[in-house]
Write a protein that binds this DNA or RNA. Structure first.
Lengths: 357, 357
DNA sequence: TGCATGGATGTGACCGGTCACACAAGCCCC
DNA sequence: GGGGCTTGTGTGACCGGTCACATCCATGCA
């Protein structure tokens, strides 16, 4: 509507924030009349500190508002517990939902999570290497071309895990990765439509992660396979140019004019939404004249009228698994960097225990 | 649909990743036959290095795959250039869009961005202080109760900026913040409905950020104000219990039964979507029988059938502004550890201008 | 009494960068 | 031809934590 929210922000410069430097472990030590090492012991819950000393140190910590400097901690060899997610998008449902996996897992595991959105404009190698320099691991969402190429350029020595499109048969991603069986899901959905009696099934595809043929993505492949298994020659696939409702609408206009189009599984829910609208504008009713199926189960899909049938994908689980993969890589690294003495230190309960978070 | 995507992930353990320790500045120095300081000069582009020496160092950097350790850099006093966003949600459109602001701004400004999702379960103070310990600034999205209370608990010495609901008249947020004028936007939208000839206007509200009365949020207030200005006694507001389409549907069922309900501006697009569906189920048609207006302009809203009229809010701009606020705070701090010169620098065009993005 | 044992605490070095400063060599100028 | 300036390079200390090891003191036990 033309009633547009007015967003020139109200500003408030806030109560005076004194930029005094944060208290260090040494400041606390001095205040408590002990050595810095004792303070370190207290903040790490080391047992061998006299009760009274501990009290004193804790008091000093409280009055000085001491917080352990995470940077120094990391530098001194403390576990890094940080992961940066590289993605080209954060708003499309698939991406956002995938991102929720690590968000939640990171919170649970006491990791800090960074998000870096990559764009076609910026220098991938620079972006990646700056992300890698942060110290923790890298998690790449490689659903699209940009993400996939980012994944390919992660240096071999950087701990990394990815969520990707299901790779073509016989090929494996360049790095440890997880994926969902989109191909099978699309095949099943298409087969279902055929069972309903449709003579053929048309597909509006999402862009592929290698940026090439639009029939190459696993979802398109699944659709194609289902048709072939039923002895039907797949029609030319549509789409492949965009992910959003507008792209779906554009393709939908074309499809709406073709009479033999009665069933349209789409590469995602947004495309499906656009297709629905195009069909509506063309006077073809859903689901009477045409069946439309979405993909991804975006949160609003269930509330559309008419309802959009959709294929649910567990993106969050995927993201969580990738995070887990990366985490185990990171923590294994930590436990056996090379030699043997370390291993002894690694079993120290404080390092591995769940209480550390 | 019952055709559910199969997501047990295919896994691939990837090519052997040797966990060799990353090369340090000293390693490079040794390889190039210079001192570590010279290496530091080269990577920082310091002019006083002989051309031939620079070449040698650069070669060593390349062969060793040296990357400057961001942790050590930060510890040694390099600017931190990192911001952590605290939010209770990342998927609702308002939040996701707000988050895009700092994502983009951070990329442009070479900042790294952390995201921390807070939940009612976890210990806010711990979460905040661990986020603060990362070193950079804190940006809080305080649209809801949880976010608002997080904002209140950020220690005074932590650089911080927030995006909040428009505060009640005469009150200011506890910390530097930006907000949109939701109240005015809602008032205008409601006035528009009244102009169309509706006798009264009902409202389905989003939850408020102080967790209390459901008529307290700025959007509800704007709706109420418009009615009062028109001499109409506002009916009891609905909603206030949830943000999503299901919540909208629940309220919509109730409203659909009341004959005098002919206009329903909703607190956000998801609620509106649910209301639309409830009206449809109840056999009341939109827009013939009832006018529904959303709020936020979520990306799919424009593609619904019938179209959802919605009020566009520039969340991304809001997020960008908050980031800018925080950034100037961080960089001022860095440049002038305390005194007064601040005011002068705050008007620096680069800080406030639109070109910064 | 003599010594091993172990708890409580302090000192020094280190992580990987930075900055401040010292120093040597080359040049200019009076 | 020696004082000053500039350029290129190296040394030492520091950021704020950690770990390894040394020390002091109170025990327990032979």
């Amino acid at each position: 509507m033309d009633v547009t929210g007015h967003t020139s922000p109200g500003r408030h410069s806030g109560p005076g924030q004194e930029p005094r430097k944060a208290a260090s472990i040494r400041d606390v030590a001095q205040a408590a009349g002990v050595s810095y090492q004792t303070v370190s012991r207290v903040i790490n819950g080391h047992p061998n500190v006299r009760e009274e000393t501990r009290k004193r140190v804790e008091a000093a910590i409280a009055t000085l508002g001491f917080r352990r400097n995470a940077t120094a901690f990391a530098l001194a060899g403390g576990v890094t517990r940080s992961v940066t997610v590289l993605t080209s998008n954060t708003t499309l449902h698939g991406y956002a939902a995938t991102l929720q996996g690590p968000e939640e897992a990171a919170r649970a595991a006491g990791y800090s999570l960074g998000v870096k959105v990559v764009t076609p404009e910026d220098d991938l190698d620079r972006t990646i290497s700056s992300a890698a320099a942060e110290g923790g691991g890298l998690m790449v969402i490689g659903f699209d071309r940009l993400g996939a190429s980012a994944l390919r350029r992660v240096p071999a020595d950087v701990p990394c895990a990815a969520v990707v499109e299901a790779p073509p048969h016989g090929r494996t991603p360049p790095r440890p990765a997880v994926w969902a069986d989109d191909r099978e899901a699309a095949r099943t959905a298409t087969a279902y439509l055929l069972e309903l009696g449709h003579r053929t099934v048309h597909h509006v595809a999402i862009p592929t992660s290698d940026g090439t043929r639009r029939s190459a993505g696993p979802r398109a492949q699944g659709w194609r396979n289902a048709l072939e298994q039923a002895g039907i020659t797949p029609p030319e696939p549509h789409g492949g140019k965009g992910w959003n409702a507008q792209a779906g609408y554009d393709e939908g206009r074309k499809l709406a004019d073709t009479p033999d189009v009665t069933a349209i599984p789409c590469g995602n829910d947004d495309l499906a939404l656009g297709v629905l609208r195009a069909l509506h504008h063309a006077g073809r009713s859903v689901p009477e004249d045409v069946s439309v199926i979405g993909f991804d189960d975006a949160p609003h899909s269930g509330f559309l009228t008419p309802s959009l049938t959709t294929v649910r994908m567990d993106f969050q689980g995927l993201g969580r698994d990738a995070f887990g993969l990366l985490r185990s890589r990171l923590e294994n690294d930590f436990q056996h960097p090379r030699s043997d003495i370390r291993r002894h230190r690694a079993d120290h309960p404080r390092k591995l225990g769940a209480t550390d978070a």
